[in-house]
Simulated scan of single mutants.
Amino acid sequence: MGFVPHPDRRPVLVAGASSGIGAATAEWLAGQGYPVALAARRVERLQALAEKIVADGGEAVAVPLDVTDEASVIDCVAKAQAAVGDLEIVVAGAGDLAVGLSYQTSPEAFADQINIHLNGAYRVYRAVIGGMIDRGRGDFVFIGSDVAIRPRPWSSAYVAAKSGIDGLVATIQLELEGTGVRAGVVRPGQTLTGMGMDLDPEVTENMLNDWIKHGLARHGNFLAPEHIAQAVAAMVTMPRGAHMRSVEVEAEGAVPKNKLAAKGQDR
């Protein structure tokens, strides 16, 4: 049995494209020639990025999206497809980060994290997957996290949500087998984005000390959002007949300067 080939034009929707991993992914894919719909709540940021992409020779449009609101998700998908065409690639990466000890986190705050990271990603998936199945092709990429494999203290709701993403993707992959549609998860390690940058300094210090105590912060290097964008690109550009089901991306530990100096590579 053959596969419906990728068309020459593969429109993309990136949910959570106003900053961080989502913005980097949108810009990276647009730079490779993909028409991209940028979606998030902060429309002014989307518009600025869309204008930059267009100025660089790409094709982009800004579309408002609140993943916690099903009507907003459905409207976003309709507007995106009207602007760039039937969606061939969708990246679900919208989210924010609220931290706290599990026994000090309110049920409402816990539920909010689940609603954004897990339910929100599912709403986007549910809104686009029918069209992909009908066309017999498409790539849906969930942005997960390595916390699903190595949970971190002070992040119980986030860990629960991202663990849920792993379970959701595993189930989806079984259900989509034979449809021609691929779904995968990219699990970033510690990445330098805007998410979590407005946390209380004392809370952040206590959290990091606990990470160190449990061996979860082995070095101070962070990934750049562009690293995750490249992982997403690798997943969706796989030729038909192959399926990259999951990718974990971790920051590389720095080589000590004395070793670099000894090899004449110190910069």
Rank of each mutant, 00 (worst) to 15 (best):
W211D: 12
R10Y: 05
G85C: 09
M197S: 13
W28I: 00
F222H: 15
E175H: 10
S246W: 06
H227R: 00
L176N: 02
V77W: 13
G22Y: 06
R45V: 10
D112K: 05
G220H: 12
F222R: 15
V61N: 06
V255Y: 06
V232M: 02
Y122S: 07
V67N: 10
Q113S: 13
L49R: 06
V159E: 15
G144N: 00
R218T: 12
Q190P: 12
I89G: 03
V99G: 01
N258F: 15
Q265D: 09
K162R: 05
R187V: 02
F140C: 07
L176E: 12
V147D: 10
R10F: 12
L260P: 15
A50Y: 08
N209D: 11
A15C: 14
A229I: 03
G20W: 03
A78H: 11
H243R: 00
R187K: 14
G58T: 04
R42H: 14
T105C: 06
A262L: 14
E88D: 09
A98E: 15
L168G: 03
I133A: 13
D139R: 11
H219M: 04
V169Q: 03
V90A: 03
S102C: 09
S156M: 08
V63L: 10
Q190S: 09
E252V: 05
R45P: 03
D198Q: 08
V203N: 04
A60V: 11
H227V: 00
D86N: 03
A48G: 08
A23G: 05
I21M: 09
T25K: 04
I172A: 09
A92H: 07
L49F: 07
G194L: 10
V169M: 09
A40G: 05
R267K: 01
G58W: 00
V91N: 01
A233N: 00
A62L: 07
P35S: 04
A60P: 04
V14L: 14
M1R: 11
G22S: 08
V91M: 08
A229M: 03
A229R: 01
V236A: 01
G178V: 08
N209W: 02
K79P: 01
G93M: 04
